[in-house]
Write a protein that binds this DNA or RNA. Structure first.
Length: 565
RNA sequence: CGGGGCGUAGCGCAGGUGGCUAGCGCGUCUGUUUUGGGAGCAGAAGGUCGCAGGUUCAAGUCCUGCCGCCCCGACCA
């Protein structure tokens, strides 16, 4: 490709709207342009990268027996009502205004299951792996970080259809391995975490992550290899437990203690002896939740404990009405009215606790959860903290921010039952198809790669995702016939050898070409200038480390082929 | 949805306490000199100052409403 005729609008200055590095570089290198919040165009150079990723996805999905579909973005609302996801998705789903009964699909479990219902009839038709690489629409309240969180984006989504749970395990494993290959081939440093299934439903799920401050997910990782999304991460922190003796409950004044930290500072309590109390409204009923000390309540875990996501923290007025006290003085003992109380597992059956007295300015001490109150259940509700021992081998947990690249789910029969996708087994019994669902955010692969592979000058591509293999730079090309002819020869030769060459044949100064080449970041630059040509040689610069070598034209091709791999 | 910031030439920004022809840098175009790390000189083009309404002799500037974009939070399969 000749740069003089190719549309690569590079930017010298940093675009004001971009704060994360991958976003800045994708704009500056002319890969993408923004059209509106969370909506981007891919320019020719970016689209080449996108297609490289898509080819890798396609190869690895085909390798596990995946069959490629292309499903519609426009979906009948009705099919989404059958699975209850019109409500579950809420505002995330776009609804078509001037044609009743149509939505824009944010994912495709429903459509896949619809086709399975149409045509999968017997166990002989299974298993199947169906996938597509297609545009998804999600009405994100706040798109951000360039291509990392968009309202329209490309997803590789696949779905496994099996006759048994063992079959699902097999399909899931195939995807797990395919995903490892995909991200490795893309050149990403990634890790896998256990994750919450959330509103997707299903039993097991894992996420493929890269560590990045630009990410929105938080993960707990440890040297033992333990890795989990913070939403489900646990630690082997010992429970608070019971002391041998615990005197009667005693009220004491705490006029200046509004927080757990205040109590620790002013009275010297140990965090382990404090029980923080928070109040939530669950489907319009209040519930009291006891947490150890300053432990943070994890709402994903709360959702699992309660079996519903219809809850919210009580507001100050409700707090007072329910407990008779304001924030900072609420506790499980001496409540105005009977309220369901649940507690974090660390507090299970513990005693000698300090908590609010449900009277402003007072706390109780010596609370025994077995003796002085009624706990309806102990659940893991806390968010793990940095440094806690991991559950695998007690190695210290590190909390990191991460970008979610892919997510694999064992769905089970949620969708097949709702839509009626059944098959007849060997015994002639009708059973629901057992499903899995597996997604990869295609743009996120590219942004993540750039997050991991850049320097102050620009992107540093590796061969698999690089938009071109070679960046051929002619110095002073407009004036030097010698240089132009040498460039033309090199360009034609390498192109004939199926190498992808971006040839900077513009009438620009050397500096402009060098800066653009570093910004765009193609792995190998061939720099052709008069001086070197006189000794029948050219310069090669490797983008990854800036190394330059002078090489004779005869050796050029072999040197490149050796170094491109 | 709550909080904050911003919207002026293709890009990055100044002007903002009302006042003359709306500026600067980069980029673009023409000419010329230059030519291995974002060239010099000379000239030129390019603007509904986000939109609508209002106040005023006069609005980029003040007021009201709206729209858009970014950031923090909430939310997020």
């Amino acid at each position: 490709m000749r740069l003089s005729q190719y549309f690569i609008p590079t930017l010298k200055e940093f675009p004001a709207e971009a704060t994360v590095i991958s976003h800045q570089l994708m704009l500056r290198a002319g890969l993408i342009r923004q059209v509106s919040a969370g909506v981007f165009s891919w320019l020719p150079l970016g689209f080449r990268v996108l297609n490289k990723v898509i080819n890798i996805l396609r190869e690895e999905m085909n390798a596990i027996g995946g069959q490629e579909f292309l499903l519609p973005a426009l979906n009948p609302t009705e099919i989404w009502e059958q699975t209850g996801r019109v409500e579950a998705m809420g505002d995330v789903m776009f609804h078509i205004k001037n044609r009743d009964g149509l939505v824009l699909a944010p994912t495709h479990e429903e459509i896949i299951t619809f086709h399975a219902r149409q045509h999968i009839q017997s166990y002989k038709d299974l298993p199947q792996i169906w996938y597509q690489i297609q545009t998804k629409f999600r009405n994100e309240p706040r798109p951000k970080s360039g291509v990392l969180r968009c309202r329209q984006f490309i997803m590789k989504d696949s779905y496994s259809l099996d006759t048994s749970w063992e079959g699902l395990d097999e399909s899931y494993k195939k995807h797990f391995e395919a995903y490892n290959k995909i991200f490795s081939r893309c050149g990403l440093k990634f890790f896998v975490v256990g994750a919450s299934s959330g509103a997707m439903g299903g039993s097991k799920s894992e996420e493929f992550m890269i560590e990045s401050d630009a990410g929105e997910d938080v993960c707990a990782i440890a040297p033992s290899g333990y890795a989990a999304n913070i939403e489900i991460a646990t630690s082997s922190l010992p429970p608070v437990g019971r002391k041998p003796a615990c005197p009667e409950v005693e009220k004491f004044p705490t006029p200046n203690a509004k927080t757990i930290d205040d109590l620790i500072e002013q009275y010297g309590f140990d965090e382990n002896s404090l029980a923080k109390t928070v109040v939530y409204i669950v489907e319009s009923k209040p519930i009291l939740i006891l947490m150890r000390g300053n432990d943070e309540l994890n709402e994903t875990k709360l959702q699992m404990a309660l079996g519903t996501n219809k809850f919210r923290p009580a507001n100050p007025e409700e707090l007072f009405e329910i407990t008779g006290a304001n924030t900072g003085s609420i506790g499980p003992v001496n409540l105005k009215q009977p309220i369901k109380i649940i507690a974090d597992k660390l507090l299970e059956a513990s005693n000698c606790l300090v908590s609010g007295a449900n009277q402003d300015g007072y706390h109780f001490r010596n609370i025994d959860l077995l003796r002085d109150t009624q706990i309806d259940g102990y659940y893991d509700l806390r968010t793990v903290r940095e440094g806690e021992p991991c559950p695998l081998a007690n190695t210290p947990i590190k909390i990191v921010k991460a970008i979610e690249l892919g997510h694999i789910f064992k769905l089970g029969t949620k969708y097949s039952e709702a839509i009626g996708a059944k098959f007849l087994d060997k015994d002639g019994l009708e059973k629901p198809i057992i499903m899995g669902s597996y997604g990869i955010g295609v743009e996120r692969i590219i942004a993540s790669f750039i997050e991991q592979n850049h320097d102050e000058f620009g992107i540093i591509w590796k061969k698999p995702l690089a938009p071109f293999d070679i960046h051929l730079i002619g110095i002073n090309i407009a004036k030097s016939d010698l240089v132009r002819q040498a460039c033309e020869d090199i360009y034609n030769n390498l192109t004939r050898k199926k190498l992808e060459v971006l040839y900077d044949d513009r009438d620009e100064t050397a500096g402009v070409k060098f800066y653009d080449a570093d910004l765009i970041g193609i792995p190998i630059q061939i720099i052709v200038g008069e001086k070197n040509l006189q000794s029948n040689s050219v310069e090669i610069k490797y983008r990854k480390d800036g190394r330059r070598t002078i090489i004779s034209l005869d050796e050029l091709e072999n040197t490149i082929l050796e170094n491109l791999l």
